[in-house]
């Protein structure tokens, strides 16, 4: 009977590894990134006194969400790159895999640990951002109400509406969700690269490269699909970029959302699906390579 138990897939085991990974990452002081984010926000608001509230809110949103996107990508890459090599160097992987644990459970546990960390960091950054923006919005609103106390109701309404329109918008949170998916994708891809990389530096360098190429992937793909006149070397190169690299530009919806473009729900769902699909495929590839790895 106990044999049955060991053979089966065990979420509890994966969870134990995930929590352990989360603690490990936390101890590596990755949360300093959050401190940096807070400083950036504070720095922004000090510096922004010279702008009108519309300009201020626009910049605040752009900087916060841009920083969130970059920091989460950085956390995903740097956090994941070390996990497996570190365990192999320290031989902790031996003690873990010498127990009746399938290798995919070990990898999933590690990955979920990173995803958990990313979720927590992005949640904290969003909370900070929302609080700052909300406080600024309230301040501007109160000031306006005070200054315009004698103005006709219509003008006051228009002013209040303008502030509301420039301020916090719930759609931004869907943008944040897409940022999270992008970070998940990058974490899974980093995990894959780290299963065959010889050094952590190699993994990080490859991933930085992937990050930039990934943003150009859509352009390369279009060129490949539509430009028939290019030479075969160029076309092969473009084809490889289009097929192997993820389309990271697809996850930059937040730019549009901040600009006030309404993104249809269907489109959002499709983007999310693409992100989940990429994450799954990279995890699968990582597992495949890791199963053949000599430890």
């Amino acid at each position: 009977m106990s044999e049955r138990l060991h053979r089966g897939f065990s979420p509890a085991r994966i969870f134990a590894i995930s929590i352990n990974t989360l603690i490990e990452l936390t101890r590596q002081k990755v949360f300093y990134v959050l401190l940096l984010f807070a400083l950036l926000l504070i720095g922004c608001s000090v510096f922004m006194a010279r702008f009108t509230f519309q300009q201020e809110f626009q910049i605040l949103k752009d900087i916060s969400l841009g920083a969130m996107s970059i920091f989460s990508a950085l956390l995903a890459i740097v956090g994941t790159a070390r996990l497996i090599p570190q365990d192999i160097d320290d031989r902790t992987v031996y003690t873990i895999l010498a127990k009746p644990i399938p290798r995919f459970e070990y990898l999933l546990g590690k990955l979920f640990g990173v995803l958990l960390l990313l979720a927590i960091s992005i949640a904290l950054m969003s909370a900070l951002f929302v609080v700052v923006l909300y406080v600024r919005e309230r301040t501007v609103l109160n000031e306006t109400l005070r200054q315009m106390s004698r103005a006709p109701g219509e003008q006051l309404d228009a002013a209040v509406n303008a502030i509301r329109a420039a301020g916090l918008n719930i759609d931004i949170l869907t943008g944040v969700a897409v940022i999270y998916l992008k970070a998940c994708l990058l974490a899974a891809l980093t995990l894959f690269v780290s299963t065959f990389a010889t050094t952590n530096i190699f993994t990080v360098v490859v991933m930085v490269f992937v990050y930039f190429i990934g943003h150009l992937q859509a352009t390369a793909r279009e060129y490949w699909l539509e430009e028939q006149s290019a030479g075969w070397v160029a076309r092969t190169f473009l084809a490889i970029v289009a097929l192997i690299f993820p389309d990271l530009q697809a996850f930059n919806l937040v730019d549009e959302i901040v600009a006030g473009v309404a993104i249809p729900l269907v489109l959002l769902a499709k983007t999310a699906l693409l992100g989940i699909f990429y994450t799954a495929i990279y995890t699968l590839a990582a597992t495949f390579v890791f199963y053949g790895k000599e430890l």
Partner: peptide, 15 residues
Amino acid sequence: VESRQAVGFLPENPY
């Protein structure tokens, strides 16, 4: 995997 069900392992110089 199930071969390791009743096994304990101590690697060399464990960390």
